[in-house]
Amino acid sequence: MKRLVIVCLVLALGAIGSANAAPAGGRVTVLCSPNVEWCDLLKAQFPKATGMQLDFVRLSSGEALARLRAEKANPIFDVWFGGTGDPHFVANEEGLSEFYKPKAWDDLRGEFRDAVGGKYIPLYIGILGWAVNGRLLREKNLPEPKTWEEMADPRYKGLIAYPNPNTSGTGYTMVATMVQVYGEPKAFDILKRMHKNVAEYTRAGAAPGVLAGRGEVAVGVTFVHDAVLQILSGFPVTYGSARDGTGYEIGGLSLIKNAPNRTNGMAFIDWALSPAAQVLAEEAKSYQIPSNSKTPVPKVAPRFQDFNVIKYNFVKYGTASVRDALVNRWTKEIFPLPK
């Protein structure tokens, strides 16, 4: 009996150990933050382009940062692909990632290159807005809100959803945008009044769009490309944004410090920024604007010119101390308020 147990254990150990063996052509391990279809496409196409194997774990940007922090002593990931920019900032600040200047650096759109100042590589740009369920609004006889402040109107009680800034980069971008548009005191005052209208603080950034699509809420604050996805999937929503100033994200791409496969990671970054790789986003139903100016922009992607985009200060609002202060303030002053 004991022998049987030992034999089984040894076999199991062997089977698992062999599963971990490195393949011949080299491999790269990617921490992938966008939707899982995009990650799957990367996994399928990267070997065709370079002959190396790609493995990924899909974690949203907040979770990814936490994982990198936990594994700082012994990173298993080589590259962090995608996700909102602020956590990439923090990663750079904390020494979890290093800045690598890719071969395609000069092809990247100038404004975004400069905005993230050598901290990480811009991968895509997404505009903050909201998904609107017109049917529900008509039922309640309400107009679509035009500014952040209008969303605090008591008529919208229970009809709004936005992501929790603790877990979602989208949620944090919204709070930081409002602070830059209205100033911190007024922004928090608006958020307090908006609290009664919020049906749910979602965990993921794309979730409010899903809720609006299902008709659970009328206005779900999310990135506009996520709203576009809902529209193309057949849900009865449209998208909008704040006319008095809305924010945007510069999705990040970072090389992890002390990566186990550093050169392969750099090869991956160079490939990921090429037009051939960036068009995979559209195939994966991700409609952000790609950062490489040579990549064709998807027809359905929201255009910068159509929105009143503020000059978002990425360096300031990406700093860990500023971010933590804002998120903590939100958690203490907004979250526990009664509905």
């Binding site: 940062l65 936490a66 922090r69 998120v327």
Partner: peptide, 25 residues
């Protein structure tokens, strides 16, 4: 709680969120 919890805090989920969301082990 993660799926139907409505975004409200529960002990088991807060363990998860404070590690993953607020990056604070």
């Amino acid at each position: 709680p993660i799926v139907v919890g409505g975004g409200k805090p529960y002990l088991a989920t807060e363990v998860f969120f404070s590690l993953i969301g607020r990056y604070n082990p």
